[in-house]
Amino acid sequence: MSLIDLANPSRFLKFAERVLPWLAAATAVLMLVGLQQVFAAPDDYQQGATVKIMFIHVPSAWLSMFVWGVMSLAALGTLVWRHPLADVSAKAAVPIGAAFTFIALVTGSLWGRPMWGTYWEWDARLTSVLILFLMYLGLMALWRAVDDPSRAARAAAIITLVGAINLPIIKFSVDWWNTLHQPASVLRIGGPTIHPSLLVPLLIMAVAFSLLFLTLHLAAMRNEILRRRVRTLRLLQASAARA
């Protein structure tokens, strides 16, 4: 099956049914391996055991932005190419992105209290991620408010592309402004500054979280295709009842 074949919702459903069990199993295995590595990793020389929060905070934060990136590509698919699965993909990603952003905010807050002495600070990084979370909630509200999925898709696509401006602001906020949040220590010019004993578990958890997103996204897309079939059949049923 070629990639272009997946543009057909029926073929996509068959593909999703086939790969989802394997993806779910791979996610579970990698998550278990990652957690074993996390709890075998040494404490940080400054932060002590609280560094363990990093292993869920950082992958969630990366995914909060990555998911918006996926939605932005899907938005282009909706607006430019009117790809049949583009708005299905965008809609399915929203609650998952919101959940990862929520995890990033809460775990960051729980990490901040013992390290910074505060749960929250209105600095550029924290505030821009909070804005990202509110944008996710806004998109969820929009998808629920508009009855016609194709109309909702166009509005959501425009908002998603405008909201993508926030992604570089989040990424570079720690460089552009004086923030309490530390600067990038993994994805930076000059290479990571984290010791390999902490970096390896972090990267395993990042891959595990990415697989988790892929699994949940495929499953949510499958559900959205079924939901649209239900909607079509209900409309047919209503028109048959009127005739």
Partner: peptide, 26 residues
């Protein structure tokens, strides 16, 4: 987990709950 065990356990518990919620929802 040292003196900050509560924060670490709370972070993992909340993350696990949210992920479990996503799986149940899907």
């Amino acid at each position: 987990l040292g003196q900050h065990a509560t924060f670490i356990i709370a972070a993992y518990a909340i993350a696990a709950t949210v992920v479990a919620g996503l799986i149940v929802w899907v």
